[in-house]
Computed example of a mutant assay.
Amino acid sequence: MTRDNVQSGAWKNIGWQDYAACTRPDIDPEIFFPAKKSGSQKDRFTKARNICGRCPVVSECLNAALEQNEVRGIWGGLSPIQRFDLGGPRPPGLTRGRRARRD
């Protein structure tokens, strides 16, 4: 699932997403994909994680991100670096030998 798929609604027939808190019409999907240079990136991550924290399918979301090697956005309440720490793909900009910073 990508930001474009989220915005277009193309992912809606996949199953667990129908129950995801982030799919409610009052939730802006952009908060799950904070712009790197955005001054409010940390605030957007916090908002996204708060939504994930009350989501009934947060585990399914995280598993999907790990299975699909998703390197961008908040999935299952975790940032790309946090997913990398769990064995996910290396996020863009994280070079070899560089320690992953905790968000």
Rank of each mutant, 00 (worst) to 15 (best):
C61T: 02
Q41F: 06
W11I: 12
G93N: 07
S59E: 11
G39W: 03
A21T: 11
P34S: 10
P89K: 06
G87R: 04
I74Y: 07
D43A: 15
S8Y: 00
K47V: 06
R90G: 08
I81D: 03
K12N: 12
P56Q: 06
N63G: 09
P29Q: 11
F45T: 10
D85W: 02
V57P: 12
S40A: 14
L94R: 11
G73H: 05
I51T: 11
G93I: 04
Q41Y: 09
I74Q: 09
E30D: 15
A10Q: 12
P89N: 08
P56R: 05
I14G: 13
D103A: 09
N50V: 04
W75A: 12
G39S: 13
I14A: 13
R101D: 09
W75D: 12
N50T: 09
T23S: 13
R83W: 00
E30M: 10
D26T: 05
C61Q: 10
I81P: 01
R101Q: 12
F32C: 06
P34E: 06
I81V: 14
G76I: 00
D18W: 01
S38D: 15
A21Y: 00
A35T: 10
M1D: 09
S38V: 04
G88F: 02
W75I: 09
A21I: 03
R99G: 11
R102V: 10
I51W: 07
A64C: 11
Q41D: 08
D4I: 07
C22Q: 06
S8W: 04
K37Q: 13
L78Y: 01
V71F: 00
G73L: 05
D28H: 05
I74T: 14
R72A: 10
N50D: 13
C61Y: 02
G87I: 01
R96T: 11
D18L: 11
L66G: 10
S59R: 12
G87T: 07
R90W: 05
T2M: 08
Q82L: 03
L94Y: 01
Q7S: 03
N5G: 15
G87E: 05
N69V: 05
A65I: 03
Q82N: 01
C52N: 09
V71G: 04
N63D: 15
D26K: 07
G53Q: 10
D4S: 15
R72L: 14
A10Y: 01
P80M: 00
R98Y: 04
C22F: 01
Y19S: 14
D103Y: 00
K47E: 15
G88R: 03
T23Q: 11
S79W: 00
N63K: 15
